[in-house]
Amino acid sequence: MSFLSATDGITVLIGYLIKRLLQMALVLFAVSVIVFLMMSFTGDPVFMVIPIDSTAAEIEQARRLLGLDRSLLSQYWIFVTNLLQGDFGRSYVFRQPAMDLILERLPATIEMVLVAITLATVIAVPLGVFAGANPNRPISRGIMAGSLLGISLPGFWVGMMLIFFFSVRYQFLPSSGRGETVQFLGLRLSILTGDGWSHIILPAVTLALATLAIILRITRAGMMEVMRQDYIRFARAKGASRWHILFGHGLKNALIPVVTIFGLQLGDLIAFATITETIFAWPGTGKLLIDSIYRGDRPVIVVYLMLTAFIFVAINFIVDIVYTMIDPRIAVK
């Protein structure tokens, strides 16, 4: 590879960004088709919005009003053109824009997920590095056995056990809700109050457990591979300290798969924290999704799924950028 000049670099970067944006658009288009079709096959939403004793004429009218009398293709066309204009439809139940409903609850989910994934990463990476660098130590074997437990235990069970011990038996932490919130930059947040923290800790731990175990195992596998490399030996021959060799030379080389999994887990937690949110009555988007599915509130479900797809695509994009920052051999193309 030649040494790129600064302007060449910027041209490459812009080209890359355009390419990625087009890819994102394509993915979102595909998701919109799938979501739309799926929704069309899951029952007639008209019965969700009309009174139970409506006449056939009233049903017909409601159907026309909702645009459900048109062909599938024209319904899709209306759906997409509205999407592009920023109109994501209104909830049948709340008669509010579906997007507003979700955005209102998104901060709750995101703050819980961020606490969970930070917790998981801060614990998992050092343990993974240790276990990978000393695979034969009894402590490492203990860590690995523990991680297996973390993967195997179902979240709902862990959540209930935590509630049982910390909320019921020792009455140490609250079992439900967000606690006290404060307004910050227009968002309602729990993590800025002590009471909020006491509420967030149990759901975050529940959510963190599986992610912690996965990140730990990936980190360990990467480190085991890296520690065999010559440059690790060369670093030792230079007189570098053990700490510096592990975290300076070793970890950065083991990080690519860790970042990949981190991104996937982050998206997964944001989109599907449903069970944990239900157990802890955490008023986030996951709970909204479940409620909307029960109520057949189609616009909310659709927007939720579109948003989820967008979050995944966006996270993957960021992850790809992070790759190039970690490993200079990976270039943006």
Partner: peptide, 24 residues
Amino acid sequence: IRAVRGGEIAMVFQDPMTSLNPVY
């Protein structure tokens, strides 16, 4: 011994392709 490594006694390895850390 860490002060000796690289300080008093340095080492050159066989394979230059792998003895440098690729990410720095």
